[in-house]
Write a protein that binds this DNA or RNA. Structure first.
Lengths: 337, 337
DNA sequence: GATTGGCACTCAGAAGACCCGAGTGCCAGA
DNA sequence: TCTGGCACTCGGGTCTTCTGAGTGCCAATC
């Protein structure tokens, strides 16, 4: 028995099952793929593949279906990520180029990704942690009330209202503004927080403290770390069968951004596309869903993660290509912005 | 035949059908409600109600189900919006009080609303159109690059990057800043746009024009008008039956924010809760979904709309109460902020 | 005139019987 | 090692039967 033919059979099974959504039998296989052998031979190979745990039959006298292990082998060894067509590339870049700000980039990424893959797309907003402070602005809204705005290198803008006890003159505000900017501008978040906390004001101590607290709060706000955009949920309607078992927990996971972040979080920094198949992950309710994700960010720093969530029965090569392509374009845009 | 007993029968049918999800028969009705008459009498009433189009039977020899018209009558005449329990009120207010900024208020509203009603909640971000400009800030990021930040009375902050041809000195920037603030601060958006466009700069005409364009763009940006938060989609899993016919179009509508806005848009300004039942709306695919919505905003200005989307078969009194309560609390918070 | 008990009628959906054919495993022969 | 052949399995479609909830209507009663 030839080892590589066995792999060819596995590949054929995965491809057929993904496109037809039905268990594939030996006869159908030899008809649709030119394997050069008879169905009986294929049956022998299939029996071997089943012994090794790569495929399984839902019931006797039915065709075979890939197992998680089978998909894993397929993804790891039988897949060459096929490049996107020129038209698709153009579509991605022109669509993303139209974005007006960071939020819009994320929104558009979700959209393009879900449309390309026809799956549920998930894009994490760039995290604060590695970005640097570009500028801090203090705006007086009323004599005893001001708005602290932090502008980060990623283009993210965080704001906080600050109530102060003593009324501030414009001069005092200007002085304060330059004070905090001297300490924080150009620093990465963590250092900026330390520098701000270490400030020893000459006067207006209470006011400075209040402002610093607001700034620190804005910078270390975990809410923004956890911000996530989800799109393409309408694609869930294509699940059709297995509604309760698959869609319900998935919808719940999509609402629970913490869960989503954990799922995405497994994506490695090293530029590659990470694939988690079915029950490989920690959530047994999501045992029939896969995650395809990758990091993105300017200058190949993986500031955040994006990807898609879909049924284990999905077109992995195409999906991986789309995820990778979108991540690259987004990264490039962040580079320029 | 007594007219008010007929209405009591209709009410009983709606209530039973909503709770059991099954067509209700005459016998079950007299058992569960103390109507004081026999099932035969109820049958007569039901026949009359059916003639008038308030109820219908899915097939002969099945119980009755309310029609859209039946729900409409129920909502209009048989419902007294029951007040929320003290505990629920407390839950709403404490949860919403924890919000740190406008976006957070919206996010939390969606969450609390979907949990209270166990439906899909939709909250529109406060529109710009009626808000006023509180302050404009210009921040130099580089000599020929600046960030224009517009702060509105609703607490919304819009920002735009501006590239300018000539390098700007700090003095020139300060002058420009005070110029645009003199024209726009305190004005409602529409007037501010006119004022800014009418500026005749003494020098740096190209720069001023670029900044003004960015500001106008930020203020009249329809994207923000159309921003919407959606939550509780996991509740769709409870639809169970009628998956394709109901959930798919609904998921699509939830993705298409324009459609959602139209649905919500029907909510009147006049403080009341608006209910659109089934096919009353313009989208025939959503003929089995209802929308319960109301406006909200500070000082009873309806700046935006919030509400829920769910199956026609829903608990209208409870849902209407929840929508109203959340709208009130959000309005109050906007009042204070 | 409104209400009620009685009764014949209807029909969706559950339960069971049946059949078909796709697919398998295995074996003997090439 | 591969192939053709053959007996076997069994999920799922189809058809039939049966049951009971629910109806409509009528004559009797209040």
């Amino acid at each position: 028995m030839q080892e590589d033919r066995k792999l060819a059979v596995l590949r054929a099974i995965v491809e057929d099952y993904v496109s037809t959504e039905e268990p594939v039998g030996s006869k159908a296989l030899v008809e649709r793929h030119s394997l050069g052998v008879s169905s009986a031979t294929v049956r022998n190979d299939m029996a071997a593949l089943e012994d090794e745990g790569y495929i399984t039959q839902p019931h006797t006298s039915a065709g075979r279906v890939p197992t998680d292990k089978g998909y894993r082998l397929f993804v790891d060894r039988l897949t060459t990520v096929k490049p996107m067509s020129a038209a698709e590339k153009r579509a991605i870049s022109t669509f993303l180029d139209g974005a007006v700000d960071l939020d819009d980039v994320v929104t558009r990424s979700v959209r393009v990704l879900s449309q390309l893959t026809r799956q549920v797309a998930v894009v994490q907003y760039p995290t604060l942690s590695r970005s640097t402070v570009r500028h801090i602005e203090l705006v007086a809204l009323a004599p005893n009330r001001l708005l602290a705005v932090v502008i980060l290198s990623t283009g993210r803008v965080e704001q906080r209202l600050v109530e102060v006890d003593a009324d501030l003159t414009d001069e005092a505000l200007a002085e304060l503004r330059s004070l905090v900017n001297r300490s924080a501008t150009g620093e990465i978040i963590a250092d900026a927080v330390v520098a701000l906390r270490g400030l020893v004001p000459e006067r207006d101590a209470a006011t400075v403290a209040a402002v610093v607290e607001a700034l620190v709060d804005a910078m270390s706000d975990h809410r923004s770390d956890e911000r996530i955009a989800v799109g393409g949920t309408a694609n869930l309607a294509r699940y059709g069968d297995s509604f309760d078992s698959a869609v319900r927990p998935l919808l719940e996971a999509l609402e629970e951004h913490v869960v989503l972040l954990k799922l995405l979080g497994e994506a490695h920094v090293g530029g590659g596309v990470t694939v988690r198949i079915g029950a490989e992950g920690p959530y047994e309710e999501l045992s029939s869903t896969s995650v395809v994700a990758t990091g993105y960010g300017p200058r190949d720093e993986a500031l955040a993660t994006l990807g898609i969530v879909g049924p284990t029965r999905m077109d992995y090569p195409g999906t991986m290509a789309a995820v990778r392509a979108v991540a690259r374009y987004v990264s490039r845009i962040l580079d320029e912005g």
